[in-house]
Design a protein around this nucleic acid. Structure first.
Lengths: 247, 247
DNA sequence: GGCATCATATTGTCCGACAATCAGACAGGC
DNA sequence: GCCTGTCTGATTGTCGGACAATATGATGCC
C-alpha cells in the first residue's frame, strides 16, 4: 500500500552524482578526477565515504587509473570490462552452451552482412590476415581457438557497429573452452573452419551481403555439429573461469 | 620487454577472492555474507578495506541486500543491473540509433524463431495479452512504448534462452526515447505495430519458426522507416538517461 | 634538451569511535 | 493466539585522525 520511503547512504549518493556527471559528459573522458581529499571536501563527507563511492565507479569501468599511476581518470568502460561483466552474468544465470550458440547464430549473419556492406580496406586486410594465419598453422589448439575468436572479433570491427562488437565478444569468450574441445576431438574441424572463413572473407571483399550472411550462418551451424561429434552435451553450462583479471 | 610486476591493493584482492567464491558457487545465491567485522577478521585487514571490496561487488550485482535489510546476501546480477551496465557502456561508446537498430534487426528474427519453436502455453498467453493490450489502447504514448518494449521482452522470455533475454533489453531500453517520438509523430505507427505483433503472435502460436522470424524482421524494419518518417536522424547518439536507479 | 634530486601531494591502509537502526527476545493486553 | 510496545545486542554507515609508500612536479645541473 505504501512505498518504502527512499533512503540512500552517502556513498551511493556520491557515486551517483559523479556517475551522472560522467554520463552527461560534464566530466569527459581522460579528464583527471579531483583528489579524494578534495572530493571529500566538496561533498562534505569523509574520505572513507568518497573512497567507497569511487570503488563503485571503478568496478563499473567509469573511472580507472593509468598504468602504475595514482590519480584516477574518467574512462569509458573498456571492452574487457563490459565483456567480463556480461559473461559473468551469463554464467550466474546458468546459460548453457546451446543458449550461447543460438545467440551467436542469430547475431552473426547480421554482423557479416553489415561488415560486407561497410568494411574498410583496412578491416578487410585484417580479416584476410587472420584467415591466412589460421589456415597456415597446424599449431596448438589454444592458438587456433584464439584465431577463430579473433576472426569473429575482426568481423565485428569491420561492421563498424560498436554494438556488434560489444555483443560479440562475451559470447565468443564463453564458447571458447568448448571450442577447444571441438578442435581437439573433431579432425575435420580445422578444415571446415578454414573453408568457411575463406568464403566469408571473399564475400566481404566482394561486398556481397547475402553470401556473407549465408556463409557465416553455415560457419556457426558447423559449431553445433562440432558439439555433437565431439560429444559435448549441448546442455553443458557455460562457465566463466574467474581469472584474476586484476586490472 | 618486461611486464610490470603485478601488484594489487588489498581491497581488490579481497573482492576478487569473494567474487571467485561466488562464481565457483562455493557461496550460493541467497546465502548471507559474514558481517564486515568478521570478514575483516578472516582476511586480516581493516574493516574499511573490506567495505571497499564490498562496494565493488555490490555494484557488480554479485551481492545485495534485502529490502530495508542490513546484512548483505549473495545475489546474482538482476537483469536491471546488467541492462543498466550495458546501456551505460553503449552510451559511452557513442552508439547511434542506427547501430542499435541494426543489432536489433540481427537478433530479433532469431529470437522470434526460437520462441516459436519452444514457447510454452504460459509465455504464449503473455504475448497474446500484451498484444491485446497494445491494440486496445489509444492511451498516452509512454504506455504504448512500454507495451512495445514488453512485447520484445516477452518474446525473449518465450524463447527460453536467458542469453536472448539479457541481450534484448539493453537494446530496447536505448531505443525507447526515439520510439516515443515515432509514436508521437507517425500516425500510422500504432497500426503497423499492431499488425506486426498480431502476425508474430499467430506464428508463435502455430510454432511456425519461419513466419515468426519473417514478421519480426518486418516489424523491426518498420522502426527504421519510422525514424525516417519522424525525421529522427539515424546518426543520433543514443543516450542513457542517468536516472538515479539507487537500488 | 635531457637527467638526477628532492619536497610535496596523494593513495592505501590502519585504528578507534559513535549514532542509527535492524533483529530478536520478552512481556503485556485484546 | 496474535498484535503491540519495550529492551538489548549486533551491525552498518560515517567520521576523525594517523602513517608508510610512492607518484607528481619542480628544481638544479650537465
Amino acid at each position: 500500500m505504501f512505498e518504502p520511503l527512499g533512503y540512500a547512504p552517502a556513498y551511493l549518493r556520491v557515486s551517483e552524482e559523479i556517475r551522472g556527471r560522467i554520463l552527461r559528459r560534464e566530466l569527459s573522458e581522460g579528464q583527471a578526477l579531483p583528489t579524494e581529499t578534495e572530493l571529500a571536501r566538496q561533498f562534505e563527507v569523509n574520505r572513507s565515504t568518497v573512497r567507497e563511492a569511487l570503488r563503485k565507479l571503478e568496478s563499473n569501468g567509469l573511472i580507472g587509473r593509468r598504468r602504475g599511476g595514482k590519480r584516477l581518470y574518467v574512462t569509458r568502460p573498456t571492452r574487457e570490462a563490459i565483456v567480463g561483466g556480461l559473461s559473468q552474468a551469463f554464467t550466474l544465470h546458468r546459460a548453457r552452451v546451446v543458449d550461447v550458440w543460438e545467440a551467436l547464430q542469430a547475431v552473426q549473419p547480421g554482423i557479416a552482412a553489415a561488415a560486407a556492406e561497410r568494411r574498410s580496406a583496412a578491416s578487410l586486410a585484417r580479416l584476410e590476415e587472420i584467415a591466412r594465419r589460421f589456415a597456415s598453422r597446424q599449431g596448438p589448439r589454444a592458438q587456433a581457438v584464439a584465431d577463430v575468436a579473433e576472426f569473429f572479433d575482426a568481423l565485428g570491427e569491420a561492421s563498424g557497429n560498436p554494438v556488434f562488437v560489444l555483443l560479440n565478444e562475451p559470447l565468443l569468450r564463453l564458447l571458447r573452452p568448448s571450442l577447444a574441445v571441438i578442435i581437439d576431438r573433431v579432425p575435420q574441424a580445422r578444415g571446415r573452419i578454414e573453408t568457411a572463413q575463406a568464403k566469408v572473407v571473399a564475400a566481404v571483399r566482394a561486398r556481397d551481403t547475402v553470401a556473407a550472411a549465408d556463409w557465416m550462418a553455415r560457419h556457426v551451424r558447423d559449431f553445433r555439429r562440432g558439439y555433437e561429434v565431439a560429444g559435448i552435451p549441448l546442455s553443458t553450462e557455460v562457465g566463466d573461469e574467474p581469472d584474476a583479471a586484476l586490472s
